[in-house]
Nucleic acid binder design. Sequence first.
DNA 1: GGCCCTTTGAAGTTT
DNA 2: AAACTTCAAAGGGCC
Length: 281
Amino acid sequence: MYKETVYSAFNLLMHYPPPSGAGQHPQPQPPLHKANQPPHGVPQLSLYEHFNSPHPTPAPADISQKQVHRPLQTPDLSGFYSLTSGSMGQLPHTVSWPSPPLYPLSPSCGYRQHFPAPTAAPGAPYPRFTHPSLMLGSSVPGHPAAIPHPAIVPPSGKQELQSFDRNLKTQAESKAEKEAKKPTIKKPLNAFMLYMKEMRAKVIAECTLKESAAINQILGRRWHALSREEQAKYYELARKERQLHMQLYPGWSARDNYGKKKRRSREKHQESTTDNSLHYS
DNA sequence: GGCCCTTTGAAGTTT
DNA sequence: AAACTTCAAAGGGCC
């Protein structure tokens, strides 16, 4: 079974060799995701910065009023305008960027015009997920503190001190519970992830593979075999994913999920180094 | 039940 | 600034 899987994967790889140095791209070019980044020293403007620039692109009404459409109850965007669905969504509006993409989409792509705008559930309030740092009252100078500053001395007396400790504990517990209950907002998908999502089923059907690791290897090779124009489609889509994510979850940061997953052993990556100072819990 | 594998890219942290 | 690490998806394999 495993052998079949390997052979199957091998055969497929043979049909999708990675571009050699003198292959599809005779002139060595930087990866598209690098090429699309702003030139060194030119920071990419945030939406806020962009719309507040001296010559801003007129902000769509829903942005200026900070109203964001909410596609579904779940914050998961994958089903919202996933490539596989065949009805790829569009941002609630088209937002101009400071500079056009290096590899603009071919007109035949057309999804910029044709994606239906997501509709908000009637009357459904838009969920605001405030960044944890903004929710910690104690860390904001001049604001009422949720957890008293150590300098704040509790009322004198043993019983009162115990009561104070209990309150501290229960507050900490409830805080932890709240954190646990808070829905996890996932990272927006990057270009390759979007590509994988679209092509996975196709690869599975072609080679009757099921193991994702093998499929992902194939997809990785296919990704490299794509033309830059084809890749540009996914980079553009990923950019829109990030943009929509930013609008839906203004306070969100990748930091929020950082270190929350159980980290796998990095033995493979550590082989060349003898650094044992890194510990993964 | 939960981590590993495997990929690329974005964004985080560390040096 | 560069290097390194984590997490996004996916689902079979494994403990």
